[in-house]
Amino acid sequence: MPVEVKLDIMMAQRKISGKELAAAVGITMTNLSILKTGKAKAIRFSTLEKICQVLACQPGDILTYVPEKE
């Protein structure tokens, strides 16, 4: 997938656990894991907004576009 999720890196920089982030954002640990591993097909803007609020970051800090090689 050409969109990489660097949520785990941002969480490490902010020293927040998955359990803490999931609780603060209001999502399950399972959904957070799906996001962290890049297996999610979509993310709601409201969820992305809450993640960015809690981590004090911009969406571009956790999501990057990497073109696929042909």
Rank of each mutant, 00 (worst) to 15 (best):
T37G: 10
A42W: 08
M29E: 15
L63M: 11
A56K: 13
I34F: 00
V25L: 07
G60C: 05
I34K: 09
I51F: 05
D61K: 02
L55M: 09
K39D: 11
A12T: 12
R44Q: 13
S46T: 14
K41F: 03
L63S: 01
K69I: 08
K15M: 05
T30D: 08
I34T: 14
A24K: 15
G18Y: 06
K6N: 14
L7R: 02
L32T: 06
Q53M: 09
C57Q: 05
A40C: 08
I16P: 12
G60L: 05
K39S: 09
K41G: 10
Q13G: 11
G18P: 06
D61H: 04
Q58G: 00
R44W: 02
L35N: 05
A40T: 05
Q58K: 10
N31D: 12
V66G: 00
L7I: 05
A56G: 12
K41D: 15
R14A: 10
G38Q: 02
G26V: 11
G60F: 02
A56D: 15
V3H: 00
R14W: 00
P2T: 12
D61I: 06
C52A: 04
T64C: 10
M11L: 13
Y65E: 06
L21N: 04
C52Y: 04
T37V: 07
E70F: 04
Q13L: 14
G38I: 01
L63I: 14
A40K: 08
S17Q: 04
S17K: 12
T47F: 06
K6V: 01
S46D: 14
I9G: 01
K36F: 05
L35V: 08
Q53F: 05
T37A: 11
N31T: 11
M11I: 08
L55D: 06
A24V: 02
T37H: 08
A42I: 01
G38W: 03
D8A: 12
Y65F: 15
G26T: 11
E70P: 11
C52T: 06
E20W: 00
R14H: 09
V54N: 07
K69A: 12
N31V: 00
Q53C: 05
I9P: 01
D8T: 14
I27V: 15
T28P: 03
E20K: 13
Q53Y: 03
S46H: 07
P67Q: 10
L7P: 06
C52D: 02
I34S: 05
A42N: 15
M1E: 07
I16W: 03
E70K: 15
V25W: 06
T47N: 06
E20M: 07
T37K: 08
E4I: 07
E20I: 05
Q13Y: 04
D61Y: 01
L48E: 10
P2N: 08
V3R: 01
L7G: 09
L7T: 03
V3T: 09
V54F: 02
L7V: 02
D8R: 14
M29L: 14
D61A: 05
A22Y: 10
E4V: 10
E70V: 11
C57L: 04
F45G: 14
M11E: 01
G60Y: 05
K39P: 00
A23Q: 13
L32I: 09
D8S: 13
A40N: 11
V25P: 13
K41T: 14
I34H: 10
T37D: 12
Q13S: 09
I62L: 10
G38K: 04
Y65V: 11
G26N: 04
M10R: 14
K41P: 05
